Each structure stands twice: as structure tokens, then as C-alpha cells.
Simulated scan of single mutants.
Amino acid sequence: MLSTIINKIRLLFSTEKESYLCFYKMLGFYPKNLKYYKQALIHKSSTIIEDNGCVQNNERLEFLGDAVLDAVVADLLFYYFKDKKEGFLTNTRSKIVQRETLNRLAIEIGLDKHIVFSTKSYSHNNYMYGNAFEALIGAIYLDKGYGVCRKFIESRIIDQFLDLDRLAKTELNFKSKLIEWGQKYKYKISFELIEEIQDEQCNPIFQTEVLIEGLSGGTGVGYSKKESQQNASAKALDLLSGSTEFIEAIAHAKEELLKLVDSTFPISEEENEEVENQEEVSALSCSEVLPTHQADS
């Protein structure tokens, strides 16, 4: 309480009142050493070289913040999920500290509006906002210590923008999940690039369609082929978990393909029996419920 009063008094006489207020709105407290926080906003594309040769950008703070964030999130999850095992905790932490989540959190607190960067270097693929978020955590750690870092992440980030219980149930690797399902029930999964275009900043945008036994399971768009495949896979999983008709259509498509192959290339009685056994396994998928997934909160 006393430190808050002192900081407010100092603010009255500061030439950087606007910067202090900006960070206060974002963080919920007044910085002590404003230099750390300003450095956290400088992307490497706008690196400042001081008279003494020192390089000023947020890369070193990002390195520190990455380690601190991992420790704080692990700390919080350890006490929040008291009965969960190490694998569950590790998986849940990875969902919080992944670049996509950090990018979104940076936007939620308004950090993206204050990052200093060269427009030529901007790309949706480099997760600039998420990196700056980690740098901000590094700045808080240097300025205020671990305790304030922990409180900031818990009260200003997790409590306001993340539902831990929901996040823990979220399936991240949709493509892997879909491929595993296809392997289990002997269905062919393939991905086809539909088109590649560019956005206003000339960044490539990919659109991919996922095919299950030749039937469309959905399309996905992303700033990389991998991202577009993940988004397409997510839609396919949604369709599979909510539509028995689609699963039946897949089974029928496979059956028709097998008949076509059989008529074109006749097989022996022994080989035919093996195919029928595989069809019986595939048919079971129509009555089984796929695990559902949720998007990030």
C-alpha cells in the first residue's frame, strides 16, 4: 500500500507519466524501473544500438520471460490440479505457454498496440505478440520479482482470460488425432492444398481440404500449410464426433472402393476373408463415439 502511494507521488513529477499510466492499465501496478518494460516492447526489427554499443531489443527479456512463465504456470497448475499426474500437468502447461495462446493473451491485455517493430518484418508466422508477452514477463521479474510475476499471471491473465478446466480438456494436435483415428479404423486420410493466396501484407495464406476415403471432411485456412491442415482436421473431428451419417458415408465409400478393386483385380478366397474382417472392424466405428474437442478458451 505504501509503495503504491510513493509510486503515485513519483508519477506526479515524472516526465514519462504517460508511459507509467499505460503500463499501469495493462499490468495493474506501477513499474519501478520503466526501462525494462520499454525494452520488452522493442522487436528485433527495430533494434536500438546505444552509444556504448549495447543492443536494445526484447530478445534477452523474452529468453528470461520464457523460463519464468514456465515456472509460474507449473507452480499454479501444481496447486490448482492437486490430484493430477505429471503428464497431465505438463500437457496443460504446454497449452498455456504455446505461441498461439500467448499471442492471443498479448492482444487481450492490449500489448500488441505498443510493440515497436518494422512493418517490413511483420508476419503472422513469427508470433511477435507472444514473444513480446514473454519479454514483458521477463521485465516484471527483473523489476518486481517472482511473487509479483506469479500474482500478475494468476489474477490478470489466467483468472480473466483462461478457463483452466476447459483448457485442460482441449485437444491441440487435431491432425495427429485424426490420423490416429484413421489408422485405428483403416480409413485413408489425405490432405490436399486447394489454393495459396496472399494477404494485404503479402503473407502467404493456405487453404487445405482433408479427405477421408475421398470424402471431404472440411477445409482449413492458415498462414502455413501445417496450420491450415490443423484447422481442417479440427473441422473433420467435429464432423466425425457429431454425425453418424458421415461415418456411415465413409464406410460406404470404402466398401464401394473395395468392390471396384475386387472387380478389377480378383483376389483369392483367403485374401477376401481378410478384407471382410477389416470391414467389420471399420463398421464398429459407426457405433463408437469419438472424443470431442474444444477450441482454446
Rank of each mutant, 00 (worst) to 15 (best):
S3D: 15
T4Y: 13
L11I: 05
L12Y: 15
F13C: 01
S14C: 07
T15F: 12
E18C: 00
Y20D: 06
Y20I: 07
K25V: 00
K32E: 13
L34K: 03
Y36L: 01
H43D: 15
I49N: 09
I49G: 02
D51S: 14
C54S: 11
Q56N: 12
N57T: 10
R60G: 05
E62K: 15
F63W: 09
F63G: 01
F63M: 09
G65Y: 12
D66Q: 11
L69P: 04
D70P: 00
V72M: 03
V73K: 05
V73Y: 05
A74W: 00
L76C: 06
F78W: 05
F78V: 05
F81N: 02
G87D: 14
T90S: 12
N91V: 01
S94G: 01
K95D: 03
K95N: 05
I96F: 10
V97R: 04
Q98N: 15
R99I: 08
E108L: 10
I109M: 06
K113Y: 12
F117T: 06
H124E: 07
N126L: 10
N131M: 10
A132V: 04
F133K: 01
E134D: 07
A135H: 04
L136V: 07
I137T: 07
G138L: 09
I140L: 02
L142W: 03
D143Q: 08
G145P: 11
G145I: 10
G147E: 15
C149N: 08
R150W: 01
E154P: 01
S155F: 03
D163R: 06
D163G: 04
L164P: 07
L164H: 06
K169D: 07
T170K: 09
T170W: 10
T170G: 00
F174T: 13
F174I: 00
S176V: 11
K177R: 15
L178H: 05
I179E: 13
E180P: 00
E180W: 03
Q183G: 14
K184A: 03
K184F: 14
K184E: 14
S190K: 07
E196T: 15
E196A: 09
Q201E: 10
N203C: 14
N203Y: 11
P204D: 04
I205M: 13
F206P: 01
Q207C: 14
G220E: 06
G220T: 11
Y223H: 09
Y223T: 05
E227I: 14
S228T: 07
N231P: 01
K235V: 10
K235N: 07
A236M: 03
D238E: 10
S241H: 09
S241Y: 06
S243F: 10
T244C: 02
T244H: 08
I247K: 11
A251M: 07
A253V: 01
K259I: 04
S263Y: 14
S263N: 15
T264A: 11
P266G: 09
I267C: 09
E271V: 12
E274K: 14
E274W: 07
V275H: 04
N277Q: 13
E280I: 15
V281P: 01
V281F: 05
S282P: 00
L284K: 14
S285E: 02
C286K: 13
L290D: 04
P291N: 06
T292D: 06
T292W: 02
Q294E: 11
A295L: 12
S297I: 09
S297Q: 03
